[in-house]
């Protein structure tokens, strides 16, 4: 299983905790999928006096390792402040760093992301940056201290899957030893299987499960898909070829006829 900052997680599936019909359905999704990491937002829920406590207690009880995030932050300062609040709330150095650069596509702000990652890494955080598939940006994030990267498959909530396969394949090839998690944009288990089949270590998703008609069943589907993809990756799959190749020899016909 993947190792993030010296911690081996229990599953290649990581789930967000927002938008479920109820906390009970959220818990069922974790239970049925065995997802190993739960991301949770704190920015909007915190309120004046730690008013989000009841929901955070439910998240702690999911049995997964908690990865708080800075969802909804549009500036470096906002993200850094939120990360500090999250560290205090969940008593963890882990932080999924989101610095949103574009309100409509929710695309990461690469410049703010590197700056916020630098500040947080210096401060002892273990940063999981939500980034694009850009190789140069990945390099910058690693150079300021990140040891895990979370490239998007597609913009958050779109369910489009891996829209830039070439870019993602390049990223994987360039950083063979860095844990890479496909974060955001996945809609169906087949897309998640494709990600782990390409060698990505894990996937993180939220909307695709939370907004499914049966979130728990969809979560289980994703868990099986990421395992299937990983098995294929490790099994060294055959290359596609143009010519049909029967698995039993064809007799009685001249070759190359």
């Amino acid at each position: 299983m993947p190792v993030f900052y010296d911690v081996e997680v229990t599953s290649r599936l990581m789930l967000g905790t927002a938008q479920y019909p109820s906390p009970k359905v959220l818990a069922e999704a974790f239970w049925r999928s065995g997802a190993g990491v739960a991301t949770v937002s704190v920015r909007r829920e915190a309120g004046g006096e730690r008013a989000g406590t009841a929901f955070w207690d439910l998240v702690r009880d999911l049995g997964a390792r908690v990865l708080p995030n800075t969802a909804g932050c549009h500036s470096v300062r906002e993200a850094v402040t939120t990360a500090h609040m999250a560290r205090e709330l969940f008593d963890t150095p882990w932080i999924k760093l989101e610095v949103i650069g574009h309100a409509d596509t929710l695309q990461p702000d690469p410049f703010g992301l590197v700056e916020a990652a630098r500040i947080l890494c210096e401060d002892g955080f273990q940063v999981f940056p939500y980034t694009t598939e850009d190789v140069v940006l990945a390099d910058r994030l690693l150079s300021v201290g990140c040891r895990v990267l979370m490239p998007w498959g597609a913009p958050i909530g779109t369910g489009l899957g891996l829209v830039n396969r070439y870019g993602l394949r390049t990223l994987r090839a360039q950083f063979p030893d860095v844990p890479l998690v496909i974060d955001a944009g996945l809609g169906r288990p087949s897309q998640a299987a494709e990600a782990t089949e390409m060698g990505f270590d894990a996937v993180l998703l939220n909307t695709a499960v939370a907004k499914a008609g049966d979130p728990a069943a969809m979560a289980e589907g994703f868990a099986k898909a990421v395992e299937a993809g990983r098995l294929a990756y490790e099994a060294d799959p055959m290359e596609p070829r143009d010519m049909a190749a029967p698995s039993t020899p064809v007799v009685g016909r001249a070759f190359l006829a």
Binding site: R44, E45, G52, T53, A54
Partner: peptide, 13 residues
Amino acid sequence: QIESGERVRPTVR
């Protein structure tokens, strides 16, 4: 619909 027990402070957002 925000997962928070806060009963005050309607936000700009």
